[in-house]
Design a protein around this nucleic acid. Sequence first.
RNA 1: GCACCCUUAGCUCAGUGGUAGAGCGCUUCGUUGACAUCGAAGAGGUCGUAAGUUCGAUCCUUACAGGGUGCACCA
Length: 715
Amino acid sequence: MPQEIPEKLLKPYDPKKVEGEIYKRWEKSGFFNPDNLPERHKTPYTIIMPPPNANGPLHAGHAVFVTIEDLLIRYKRMQGFKTLWVPGADHAGFETQIVYEKKLEKEGRSRFKMDPEELRREIMEFTLSNKKFMEGQLRSLGASCDWSREKFTLDPDIRNVVYQTFKKLSDDGLLYRGKRIVNWCTKHQTSLSDLETNSVEKTDKLYYISYGPFAIATVRPETIFGDVAVAVHPEDSRYKKFIGKEIEVKTPIGTMKLKVVGDKGVDMEFGTGALKITPAHDKNDFEIAARHDLPHVEVIDKYGRLNEKTGKYAGMKILPAREAVAEDLEKMGALEKVEDYTHEIPTCYKCSTVIEPRIMRQWFVKIKPLAQEAMRAVRERKIVFVSKRFEKTFFHWMENIEDWNISRQIVWGIPIPAKLCTSCGEGIVDIEDKVKICLKCGGEMKKDTDTFDTWFSSGQWPFAVLGYPENNDFKTYYPTDVMETGADILFFWVARMIMLGIYRTGDVPFRTVYLHGLVRDKHGQKMSKSKGNVSSPMEMTEKYGTDALRMALIIGNTPGSDMALSEEKIRGYKHFTNKIWNISRFVLSNTENLRADKEPEITDKDRVLLQELSELAKEVTNHIECYKFYMAGEKIYHYVWHTFADVIIEESKQRLKEGGGSADSMSCMWMLREILTTTLKLLHPFMPFVTEEVWSMTHGKDPKQLLLIQQWPKI
RNA sequence: GCACCCUUAGCUCAGUGGUAGAGCGCUUCGUUGACAUCGAAGAGGUCGUAAGUUCGAUCCUUACAGGGUGCACCA
């Protein structure tokens, strides 16, 4: 039956007008939910979405993950898999708290002056409104995820899973409350994991101070009051004789008696070969002190000020105190020399404040046993990284992993279900909130006010969102297929998911890891607000259409490498969107007389063209299977424009003109329709909107006819 | 310090053991019913440097140079 060309197709394509409506049709069809997919969809295929932080609008990096994951899901759905893509939103503990703190600062308020409950309530309100906003943005990027299964990282069932893991770690002896040196940010007033610090190169003064019978070199003379010993190398012939002795050291506030210890950690070549030991304020010293059973003397408080043990320096901030102490030492004639010294120091990854190592009681996870299992899974290829080089990085980090501090002194997060003894400091896991008295000393137990490191809970995301252990979804969809996320959170998140996933469920959380790089500006520069080169994905979809943005994010984007994104590139693919529209317009309006239900006799020439088309389908499929989306996209782009449009359509014009119902023109029409149909299918995972829109021109409004669930071209 | 990555056309990047590719940009021409959000034609690279393996290297090996990233307790 001849088909009428819809009025709509005669007008230019306007993505803004149709995208929203198309998304609604998809959503209404119910096919984002695997339970509603037709019979042929049997084998599960699962992706867990990296939950975006619900603390601001989506950025280009989010657009990349949506595009890649949606591409995979649409492709697999068309292939007949029972596809599940679980969306989520992350409360993003520390990150969100910082965003909110900045807002408070602007309003002249401070979280330190607020009631924790009130603060928590405000941030919750802020996060939930952002979450709603963010969900709309995911929709406009075309994400075909199952909204009925959406999860928020603070949902009660998620929290319960996290609590059970905490308990299990405790039961298995992998959790302890340790008094250890932690990375302390004096601005944010919380401890941080090693990953949450950045090493920054800095040039400081190295002070040589006469110190009893020694001279020692230090960049931190202000910590002298917390010294408990001097360490030398056991083989150092200069100092051997002092080992085990006690020495007297004069400081500006009096005389201290210090032990001399021999420790192989001391480098004879550096400085003077004698090292002052300040266990309470230096990680290295803390470890040496532990080896020699030395006491800890704290002289700097949590605000970065010297405390009452420092006499006249009490109350001074670290840097002024450093200068003052150095000056006084010089007056005493104890300052031998000062050199410039360039070294790397840890800073807070958010505010760049120099980390002040402090001794605190915190919850630590003995992570090494979990790391062993995680490495084994990767070694045994149970988990495969799409970019091999990340496996190397992964192993390097895992082999050197240290115990993980999961306590944070912030309100925005999952509260740690534990009780702490007010007299002896002992901590105990107490999910049911029952323990009142310390089992060790009989002291009063109070609730731990700390929250979990966000990554402790998000590390459990894949099995938590699927309802581990009893939910059917867990049984059906776990282990998931692909974990696609930013390469920058390989350690923060991916490694932890692997460790905690195996630990809790006994199986890997996902089989394939695809890591994407950073989206940079058109000159390859990092995007940042201060440089003003941030491109907002929402602005781009508004201007050029989502399909154009998606294509720009796919082509030229190789796994693991950073990519440069320019507005010109997006515009280029808007032109491509338009090309598709016009090709469709031509083909549909020139094949009105074709009887769709009956294949005419095909000429040899057309047969060759159809053969080439099936070659293309094969290539595109293979590239997607190998995660080479950039290749797949480029191939199909090139075919559609420079073969289909420039050659095939151009040559068909003559045939159609002369044809008038002849066998040749019927063959030509059939061939054109075939190519259009197949290319629309091949393009759909890349450019879902325009392809669906064209498809609906000939397939009507029946949800079962949506391109979304059509059969992927067979190869 | 260790590890990893990168260096190909003006820009951003693909790619292959056998005489170099895309997009954008540039030049010239084109108002023909799919499309000027277009079409046709074209300019433009000794594939970072040096050596080695090979019949043959942009692609493999090594060294060097430049750029980047990750990790690391040397006071």
